[in-house]
Write a protein that binds this DNA or RNA. Structure first.
Length: 152
DNA sequence: ACTCTGATTGTTTGG
DNA sequence: CCAAACAATCAGAGT
């Protein structure tokens, strides 16, 4: 069973985006991602731009898994226990793997909790995107859409 | 000392 | 539809 039916509670919301559930062998997924975010943060820090600029494109909200991930870190039990079980483990990646594995083993009901949070967050993100789009319409940025071509 | 990388899955977005 | 990118976390490792 363990089949993640697309008819999830979050799916009921039927947000603007279409939820395409496709479970494929993503084994070959590329993991070489460039987490340039660190640089952005550092850069921002150097810039002393503590205030976040809403004008920027809204960043992608953390997924359910990420919430679970962060939550696990908040849970001292998890970290402590894991460290006790794996004293050799430095920390990050290994725990991530464990989390991922556990995540897959988690039941739908367990995951739905995080999914719900992620769904709500997505709604806000969607709203932010809309507002961002609106702002763009004001002609605030260089982002010249292809549709901006109209006779004059 | 400061900055980056590393790994996990899910969601986003563009072509 | 497919593929690539990017979201947070923290400590280790490199310069």
């Amino acid at each position: 069973m363990a089949k993640i039916a697309a008819s999830s509670a979050s799916a009921s919301t039927s947000t603007t985006g279409k939820l395409v559930l496709r479970i494929k062998s993503n084994e070959g997924m590329k993991r070489s991602l460039r987490q340039t975010k660190s640089r952005e943060e550092t850069k921002a820090n150097q810039n002393k731009s503590k205030q976040k600029i809403d004008a920027e494109k809204p960043k992608k909200p953390p997924t359910a898994f990420f919430y679970f991930f962060s939550f696990s870190f908040l849970r001292e039990d998890f970290r402590k226990e894991y460290q006790q079980q794996n004293p050799d483990v430095k920390s990050m990646r290994d725990i991530g793997k464990a989390c991922g594995e556990k995540w897959k083993t988690m039941t739908y009901e367990e995951k739905v909790q995080y999914y719900d949070i992620a769904t709500e967050k997505r709604a806000e993100f969607d709203r932010a995107t809309t507002e961002y789009n609106k702002k763009k319409q004001n002609g605030e940025y260089e982002d010249t859409d292809e549709e901006s071509e109209y006779d004059e």
